[in-house]
């Protein structure tokens, strides 16, 4: 079998981002030797892991033509919740209970309001964004709580499992499961169908409300896990953790080719999109560019990616109509 480069029309939307990522890596390797040091690369991986975990959940919600803006706040809420119960039980149990409670409470609220009652996801999660951030502040009175994490939580957020960084392992497991679920199960098909054409999905007998409910539960679960990872990384739980992170995550998901209007996208795209954003910000830091510029660059990249996707579709459409003449 011969290897063929994908053509404009058949290549996935994230392919361009992958090419940019490789180019960026090469440029950095040639200009800044410190970039390719083991500790810097592992730093990129570690700092990408939390946005990617949130991005996996976000991908589900955006695929159904929704959005979950609450993930940054829920990450903080999850950490604070862990800090509250960690003294009461063994650590592994505290982790499980925290994730379970976050999934049930946040997923339950977002999922019921959006999936069952049909409310707008933007409005609902904008509300829960405020609520859970507020609760995190109220409970801690605005202070950061330091936590004796122990080996398990440390490994999830920061340490190594054998040779592999723990956060990377979490990403591999969650992304792997999600890739399978979205591609090869009935639920995965239903997620794409609901986002692609909700009426058609409903007519075909899909319980569209239940599908929508489930994606917010999944997103809450991912935010719960990300909260634990954050605690593992910093050995503390802060009510400010993850503030504004939801926007970075949405940017990465969109950069990876998932369409805001739903029905199109992939976990691969999300992983590559967010990894790319993290590589860019890391490169800029190493080059000594101010962090203010990093925000500008992120915005420009997102705009460029969306524009590129539009041009790609336009070109492939034109090529097709020429072919047929």
């Amino acid at each position: 079998m011969k290897f063929k480069l994908p053509s404009l029309s058949t290549m996935p939307a994230w392919f361009g981002v992958l090419v940019l990522e490789v180019v960026l890596l090469i440029v950095m390797a040639l200009t800044q030797p410190v970039f390719f040091s083991g500790s810097n690369l592992s730093n990129i991986v570690r700092s990408s892991a939390i946005p990617i975990v949130l991005g996996i959940g976000m991908t589900y919600t955006i695929l159904t033509a929704g959005i979950d803006l609450s993930v940054g706040s829920v990450l903080a809420f999850s950490g604070i919740l862990l800090s509250g119960i960690i003294e009461l039980m063994p650590r592994y149990l505290a982790v499980v209970v925290t994730i379970a409670l976050v999934t049930i409470i946040v997923g339950g609220i977002n999922g019921t309001l959006i999936g069952r009652l049909g409310l707008n996801s933007f409005v609902v999660t904008l509300g829960t964004l405020g609520i859970f951030r507020g609760i995190a502040y109220l409970v801690t009175n605005g202070t950061t709580r330091s936590i004796d994490t122990g080996p398990l939580i440390n490994k999830i957020g920061d340490g190594n499992v054998g040779p592999i960084p723990g956060p990377l392992l979490v990403v591999i497991v969650l992304a792997g499961i999600s890739i399978y679920v979205l591609r090869s199960t009935y639920f995965g098909r239903d997620v794409y169908a609901v986002g692609g054409n909700e009426f058609a999905a409903k007519l075909a007998g899909i319980y569209t409300g239940r599908v929508k409910m489930n994606v917010y539960v999944i997103s809450a679960f991912c935010a719960g896990v990300a909260g634990i990872m954050q605690v593992g990384r910093l050995s503390s739980a802060a009510p400010t953790a993850g503030a504004g992170l939801e926007l970075t995550v949405v940017a990465g998901v969109l950069l990876g080719g998932t369409r805001l209007s739903g029905g199109v996208g992939s976990i691969w795209g999300t992983v590559i999109g967010l990894l790319f954003l993290q590589t860019v910000s890391n490169s800029l830091t190493i080059q000594g560019v101010s962090s203010y510029w990093q925000q500008v660059v992120t915005g420009v990249l997102l705009g460029a990616a969306v524009l590129f996707d539009r041009i790609r579709l336009e070109l492939s459409g034109r090529a097709k109509s020429k072919e047929k003449k």
């Binding site: 169908a193 692609g196 054409n197 009426f199 058609a200 999905a201 199109v264």
Partner: peptide, 9 residues
């Protein structure tokens, strides 16, 4: 287009 096919599938 609006009610039965899912265009991107």
């Amino acid at each position: 287009r609006l009610k039965s096919t899912i265009h991107e599938m």
